[in-house]
Amino acid sequence: MAVDYSALKAGGFMRQKQKDNFSLRLRTVGGTVTAEQLRTVQAVADEFGEGYIHLTSRQGIEIPFIKLADIEEVKRRLAEGGVETGVCGPRVRTVTACQGGRCCPSGCIDALDLAEKLDARYFGRELNHKFKFGVTGCQNNCLKAEENDFGVKGGVQVAWKEDACIGCGVCVKACRRGAITLEEGKITVDEEKCNNCGRCNRSCPTDAWDVTSGYMVSFGGTFGNNLKFGEGLLPFIRDEETLLRVADATIDFFAENGLPSERFFKTLERVGIDTFKVVVEKAYKGEE
């Protein structure tokens, strides 16, 4: 019987250089794996692999050296233990995320929560080429937003609250962009310099800032054979609904305009980033 390698690849089984051996990629979101799932992975790696796993660059787990003959049994065992297999090939891949908002004090958004939503909405969707989402909680960019086809970075818009301010000057120094000046007890923020990092509010002893958290999106990044930083085409996005509208419009644009085996940034170059910009601007504004 002929082996359908592309079906196996779609199911996360990646052919190894050793004949009839596969490295099995598991489904993870934002690098979160429960202890229970780990126990299952451990048992499968012991029994069907070679007693080890590989951690991928996208926060995933692979179990190498799964034998062709064991594939069905491995899938069954994993499913029993609440572990799903991942995907490979031309489709939406693992969504990466940091622990911003949930554990990290710097987090401006709940990056994991958003990653779970993006995963539920798009994971595995068939496209012309792979498509990567990544979510990072703040400007520290631990999860490298701009290397993704669709990168999300959390941020805050800040507005000074005069009545709560004690004029201590801490924020002026905390701001790494030199955006804040304090003169005669009054704070001014240079919007041009501000990058929405939120350090001013986090360091302010009296929380003398109104903060609105939101998202900064970058489009068309890749960090493989080609190196390209995703571009920010939109203003600060203040709500999740708008963000998801923009994500929908992006994926649909790629599905409609991408050629087979063409990465998203190539599509943007060929079709024109301005054409795409019009599309996402409409989605941003909620226009049809």
């Binding site: 004090p105 004690i166 201590c168 801490v170 120094k173 905390a174 790494r176 986090r202 360091s203 002893p205």
Partner: peptide, 18 residues
């Protein structure tokens, strides 16, 4: 000066002046 005030605040102390 960029980071210590924030850490002091996160420990719950009250910053009066810089």
């Amino acid at each position: 000066v960029q980071n210590v005030p924030r850490s002091i605040k996160e420990e719950g102390h009250q910053i009066l002046k810089l």
